[in-house]
Design a protein around this nucleic acid. Structure first.
Lengths: 214, 214
DNA sequence: TAGATTGTTAATCGATTAACAATC
DNA sequence: TAGATTGTTAATCGATTAACAATC
């Protein structure tokens, strides 16, 4: 349960929309100096009311008769989202997805620093991928503590994903981004976000096959 | 707008939950013969009411006093989701994410067949990645028609993502799974699902930093 | 038959949108 | 000043949960 500005509870849907607001303000930065909730709503395909209510959970950023200053709001959102500070993370699993993520350079711009990769395959341990060392999974608990790791990305086969999650939680990890195609067995209030690629693709193909011309 | 069993409109949230139901029935298959909505709700962390209402959009699959037959429901969901038939798709962009997806073997089990990869880099064209040929993006429109491609995965830099989307739609693609970190400029009713990795990670780290012990 | 459990309708809850006083 | 637009509260909408008759 997360509270905003004046102690009101921020709905999870609002939090999950925040990065999208940041993307729009980032894009707006070299388009215009100010933007109204009406204009932004049109751009984002949402209502002006939603824009104002969403932003109001975090502060009073606008000005009557003017709107929101784009540069200011981008800075505010960067601060709110922690983009302006460094967040240490690790990737567990150096398979296809794991390796692609190691090379994914968008993490850096969002303030995330990849401190290590973990796997179990002997031939990989000690190697570097894109300048980041691969360690043995047995060392992950001490590494989390020593290197002050906040977040872990799980990119291992589903058969071992829960074993990995258990190790991470024991090591003191604060949040997990899970790419394994299952729901991890974690305490119900533990921060976890899932990226289920096949789920998304199945929902998409269902929609494609069933949609009527509306 | 998609209609179910008796012509009632199926909410999008329900459609997006379907693959998750399939995953649970797939797992249940070698655990038990039947499952009640109560039991399944406990497993999935949802209510028995939601399980029953969700499934009821697609048919009357249960039996009073018994519950749902696991094997039967898995088959029904496979049919509903189109897992039992082949869906042709392509990947556009042979960068880090694109290459990882080419090697991702979970597509096959969900009925998806990768027919081609598209890029613009001359050194890649004609090469094979994991047995699949890389073609030039200029050929994508004719390829979609000739090879009967339904879905495209966009895994290109955000600067060119909308150009790619335009080509795909002109070529007759039916749905897009977008990995580029922006919202594509498409007709509002065009089937698209987004996987915004950085958005997920930012929301997660916000939650990690702000959650109170509730 | 009695107990269990469905599918569906009604009640509740939470999120979105509309309205509007405040004010730049 | 007059017009524009905010932040917030009230009204509406849609999704979830509870209740229950039907029936295996």
């Amino acid at each position: 349960m997360i509270r905003g500005k004046d102690g009101s509870i921020i709905p999870k849907v609002v939090i999950e929309r925040l990065p999208r607001y940041y993307r729009y303000f980032d894009w707006l930065e070299d388009q215009m100096e100010k933007v109204s909730s009406k204009k932004l709503g049109e751009l984002m395909g949402s209502s002006a009311s939603q824009v104002r209510l969403d932003l109001s959970y975090f502060g009073d950023f606008g000005q009557q008769g003017y709107g929101y200053n784009v540069t200011k709001l981008k800075k505010e959102l960067a601060r709110i989202l922690g983009i302006d500070r460094q967040t240490n993370f690790i990737i567990v699993g150096a398979g296809n997805i794991g390796k692609a993520l190691v090379r994914y350079d968008a993490f850096f711009d969002a303030g995330f620093t990849l401190k290590g990769i973990f796997d179990i395959k002997p031939s990989l341990i000690g190697k570097k991928i894109n300048g980041v060392t691969v360690y043995h999974i047995d060392d992950v608990k001490s590494f989390i503590k020593k290197e002050n790791i906040e977040i872990a990305i799980i990119a291992v086969p589903k058969q071992v994903a829960n074993d990995v999650a258990k190790l991470l939680v024991e090591g003191g990890i604060k949040g997990i981004l899970n790419f394994a195609p299952l729901d991890l067995d974690l305490p119900s209030d533990f921060p976890v976000e899932n990226i289920h690629i096949i789920d998304k693709l199945l929902a998409l193909s269902f929609i494609v096959r069933h949609r009527e011309d509306e």
